[in-house]
Every structure is written in C-alpha cells, then in structure tokens.
C-alpha cells in the first residue's frame, strides 16, 4: 500500500518529547481503537462462493441471520472493493489459481476466513487428487470455522472472532499489522497448472526432487505400506 496519502509515521513524531519505547503508542492508541471500531463494523466480504458452504453463507446473509447487523451485508463482487474473503467450500487445484489472484487483488488491510472443513484443511475430500489441503497452503488465513458445513450461527461466531481480531490490531509501525509499514505488501506468487498444481515458491524443492528420478511418493509409499500385500490380506 502506498504511503503517499497519509504517512502514518508523522503521527509518531509529535512535538512533545516522548520516551522512545512509548513512541509508537501515544498518538496512536485512541486513534487505533476508533479506527478499528469502524473497520470491524464495516467489513465488506467478497461475493465469492465455492461449494456447499456458500449456501450456508447466503443463508447467513439472508433475513434469518442477517449479516447486515454486523455491517457486512455489502457483498462486493470485485476483490478491489472487499476487505474479507470468505473461502466457503472446497478449494480445488484448478480453483486455487483464481483464488490467489483474487487475494492479490484485494487492497490491504485484507482478511481471509476459511469457512468449513474443506477450506481449512481439505475436509472430507482431502484425499482427492484435485483438492488443495486447506487454502492456508497458499494464502494466510485469519479465522478458521470448522464444521461441514458450519451452520449460519457458526459462521457468525467466526465473523465475530474476526471482528475481535481486528479490534486488537493497532496502527503502530512494526505492530501486528503489516500493511502500515513502508512499501507495498508482497503479492503471493500465483500457482501454475502443470502435471499437478505447482507452487512457484517450491522451485528449489523441484530441483532437488527431480534428481531423485522417481515420481513423488504417495503417502503409502512414504509410510512404507505395501498396497499389494494389504489388498491380499483382505
């Protein structure tokens, strides 16, 4: 994020002398809480549904559970206007590419909520060949909501947890929020679809693995299970 509009570091240089260890606190604390109060009560989620959980997310947004009580009813269809990505459902390898792209396009400060077992860690479909074992393998997740699917109330609980998290963050330089530091935040390298999904961050690993001259071992091979023998005893 660019610092041109508002250089927050100016806030740390008030005219009165402030002890060094206090410098990032004094001017910021009350502003922080006011600012966080506003932020946490107007989280705009991205209108983004993946699977079964998306249906419960829509049910949460509907009249019975009513997300607008939390100021979250403004679901934006574009990542550029949203603060929160609710990953609601199974993340497949084919879909992780657009998900990372969407995440990169969201402006800071941005949050990710992994809704349901699939988004958190692969869920019941984890063993599948086209399923990513949790969206946090690629994008940082702030709140995990377990359940398959989480009921609307469980999702609301997760969103309240997120609000609490936001309220605890403060504006100080080097504090818990990364985006008030200098310069734009690094975007996440977008995965590539090859023989299987490829995380560009693994380049070095690929070089090492390629030398071994074998296909990536399955869990059975890694554990030394002999599938043939196991099948025969059945």
């Amino acid at each position: 994020m660019s610092n041109d509009e508002l250089d927050l570091r100016e806030l740390h240089n008030p005219d009165i002398p402030v002890p060094e260890e206090m410098q990032s606190n004094v001017a910021i604390t009350s502003l922080s809480s006011l600012y966080n109060w506003g932020r946490s009560r107007s989280i705009w989620p991205m209108l983004f549904g993946l699977a079964c959980c998306a249906i419960e997310m829509i049910a949460t947004a509907a009249s019975r559970y009513d997300l607008s009580r939390f100021g979250m009813e403004v679901m934006r269809a574009t990542p550029r206007q949203s603060d929160l990505m609710i990953v609601s459902g199974t993340v497949t390898k084919k879909m992780i590419v657009p998900i990372v792209r969407l995440y990169n396009q969201m402006p800071e400060p941005k949050y990710v909520l992994a809704m349901g077992a699939c988004a958190s860690g692969g869920g019941p479909f984890k063993e599948g060949y086209n399923v990513v074992s949790g969206v946090d393998k690629y994008v940082p997740v702030d709140v995990y909501v377990p359940g398959c699917p989480p009921t609307p109330q469980a999702l609301l609980h997760g969103l309240i947890m997120l609000q609490k998290k936001i309220e605890q963050q403060h504006l100080g330089v080097g504090a818990s929020v990364p985006w008030y530091g200098a310069g734009p935040s690094e975007s996440i390298p977008v995965p590539v679809l090859g023989p299987d999904v490829i995380d560009p961050r693994h380049a070095e690993l690929f070089r090492r693995e390629a030398l071994k001259g074998r296909a990536t071992p399955t869990v059975a091979e890694a554990l030394g299970l002999n599938p043939e023998a196991a099948a025969e005893t059945k």
Partner: peptide, 9 residues
C-alpha cells in the same frame, strides 16, 4: 457446540 472458530488450525 458449534462455536469452535479459531485463529490457528
């Protein structure tokens, strides 16, 4: 109890 949301899985 469905209120199991957490910050760290």
């Amino acid at each position: 109890n469905y209120e199991l949301a957490s910050y760290d899985r």
